[in-house]
Design a protein around this nucleic acid. Sequence first.
RNA 1: GGGCGUUUAGCUCAGUUGGUCAGAGCACCUCCCUUACAAGGAGGGAGUCGGGGGUUCGAAUCCCUCAACGCCCACCA
Length: 917
Amino acid sequence: MAASNRDKPRLEGLEAKWDAKWEASGIYHFAAGKPRHEVFSIDTPPPTVSGSLHVGHVFSYTHTDTIARYRRMSGMEVFYPMGWDDNGLPTERRVQNYYGVRCDPSLPYDHTFKIPADAGNATRRKQLAVSRPNFIELCQLLAAQDEKVFEGLFRRLGLSVDWTRTYETINDDSRLVGQLAFLDNLAAGHAYQVEAPSLWDVTFQTAVAQAELEDREVPGAYHRLRFSIVGPDWVRSDSALTGVCTDTRSADAHEIWIDTTRPELVPACVALVAHPDDDRYRSYFGRARAITPVFGVEVPILAHELADPDKGTGIAMVCTFGDTTDVTWWRELDLEARTVIGRDGRFVLEAPDWIAAADGRAAYARLAGLGVRSARSAIVEIFAESADMHGKPRPITHPVKFFEKGDKPLEIVGSRQWYIRNGGRDAELGAALIKRGSEIDWVPSYMQTRYRSWIEGLNGDWLISRQRFFGVPIPLWYPLDADGEPIHGQPIVPSADELPIDPCTDVPVGYDESQRGEPDGFVADPDVMDTWATSSLTPQIACGWRRDAELYASTFPMDVRPQGHDIIRTWLFSTVVRAHFDADTVPWRVAAISGWILDPDRKKMSKSKGNALVPTELLERYGADAVRYWAASGRPGTDTAFDEGQMKIGRRLAIKLLNASKFAGGFATLDESTNANDSVTLNATTHSVSISPWLITATTDKSMLARLADLIDAATEAFEAYDYARALERIEAFFWWFTDNYMELVKPRAYGEFGPDRAASAVQGLRLALSNIQRLFAPFLPFVAEEVWSWCNDGSIHVEAWPTPAPLRHVAGDIGADVCEVAAEALSAVRRTKSEARCRLRTPVPRAKFSGPSHRLSLLSSVIEDVKAAGVIESVEMLADVNDLTNITVDARLEPPDTQPVSKTNQPTSGADPSPT
RNA sequence: GGGCGUUUAGCUCAGUUGGUCAGAGCACCUCCCUUACAAGGAGGGAGUCGGGGGUUCGAAUCCCUCAACGCCCACCA
């Protein structure tokens, strides 16, 4: 280490310097072959690389890194891989925008395809149609670029990831694992396909799963519509009419009014439903039938518990399908399916055959081809013309289900989809999965509640098939019958050694390509799996499941899954499901849940709100250690306010560590200086400076070490509980006490005021303490800790042993932590007296009187030499004061300062008597 | 509608089984260029611990209740 670097230690440049050295030395590489109990394996969250970098990445990944570094120093072989989530819709969408293309699966692969010249800046209105294989290539290309950006940030942040162990959720390995696991699930009956109504995003033209839904409050309106009543069995009952529609005063009782927010779905109406106990409608059930307005379709009037008598008129129109309740009614009441909205979200062009009346068909013609919103306007006009709508639509705001990534309300359409069982239709499986949750240690513990309540609220199995392109393909083909129709019940399953496959380009054994799509030939399952179907296998992907038995045995089940609380229902839950099926175990022992970053308004920071900050700017401004300090002060699971002030404090802390280390290393001890005359600076070329604990003889030094030992216990205990924030808080508090009090107390002695032996004790005490303090800070401030460590040691601090208290207690012997605390308190009292007298701290004190309880005074007397020297006190008097049970107070007689204090208002304010007379 | 969390100084937050628990840092004010550190250092003022009840010798801490904020979930016609 060049001495010049130590003259004025700086933080600038440390990140590039040490990142390069860590990369070169490979200290974070996982050494395979260790037994499971010596390995600490981390299921790192693969960031969505198509998203933008934001401070949230810095925040939660730092938490994990502190844990990883702690475990590494504690002697564990840390398995800390990094995945990139490039699979799925976000990448597709980014590729579309970035290159100005869209995927057209009907096109053949274009070998001559060239990347559009305006990539990154594509503003063409008309997107270029490209084949599915070309589109996937673009996805992979762009994802690879994006991954570099993320890796750059994470390296800059100092994550101790093993960068030789990265994976992409779309790479061959992930596809292999995803397809193997799927085929396992299929063979075991955990995966199945069914033709059923499912939630459908009309923009992305894909089915979506329950876990991907979110409710949004949107404006809507109630429309009160008239249905006529017919039926040979129906006997009119006046009582039955009471309240049916109090505000229409209809003289004709042969009608029912319903309120709906989806009037455009009247052509898809299949029934009216009211509560079985509702006296207003009871007489209709099973006897009368209703005629839909305008369209003239006859539908039954039925009873069902889910109908809410207090909503609208108490009777609901069942359509196929307006919402999930419609699906329930459709299924439980065994109703027909009358679909009018196609997969593109538009009304089908052909008038449905169940609408027989000419008026009805004419009315439908006005809806054909329209989107939902336009159709709603159109039908309101139609009903207004026919006088089947009472009054005007009554505006309301109501929650509507959206795909979390979409911006149009979801529709429900019937389609054939693949599902994996997740307990949503099987109480026994649900209970087993809830029990798995109890086998995991949750940090913080209350997060388990979210997991449990999500499972308890499931209303169906996990829909995994997506009608998209950039994902892991469902690895199946279907035989075609003589008419060219697929036989879905007899899928053609590839063998494991064929995987991964893309059935759209690969051909099943026993067929050849010419038979694709031909009668008696085969056809590919065109779908890909949902991105969570791959992400749910991150432990299997990272740990080498079915590919590397040794790695798998030493890393799985993993130790910890760090993640945000917003994806407990998706990533966490689905991972538990897969491990339950694949390995009959939980995937990890601990789930460490991070909170979110809130901006100063206590809103979640997000790009859409325009308040997200670019993390690279923060790293530039404050340095990685400072940003990590801020991140690590956010407690597990707790949402944390974005606070640049904390980064400033972190920066100051890092600088303090530099300077304190420089001071401690800047002395030559007796044994070292014998050959170097009276040199007082550490030989700049000497590495591996020895620490000689046996030279520590002074009570102050021993007591400080006892206090440090207590700190190590506290920090270790906090880390074992995954509470990095508590560990940091304790370490930091000790360190400031150490610099402000201990270092000031021993400074005169270290400079030799009491002779070489006493100096050696101080210097060795400083060195031993700093050696421990540097290691305690290493998980939080890896760059500055490595820098200061390198001044006196060979090798990286990050593979040094985590401090243990026993050696320090051995040195301390029977001296307790309380001695130096009393000394610090006495010194502080002296300083206060001087400060209140507006004197310099170097002002000599001719006589100081310390008063306090006798047991504390006796502790003080054992270290009074250091207190006198640090306080520049010439003589001391001690007065036991039984009234003052706790505190040391000082009555110092101060001489006139060498120079007059700057302030003119030289007024003592309390306690001390600074009068110079 | 159900559930989870939060509420302590102007700000950001500690406060572990009830008893040195009224704390830290920032900000503010005063002083100090001191041989690790002026991007420093030494001091100081500042809070009805969200409100109300209760248990206890004693409550920021335990119980009940209310309120505000945030989040999760819910069948939203």
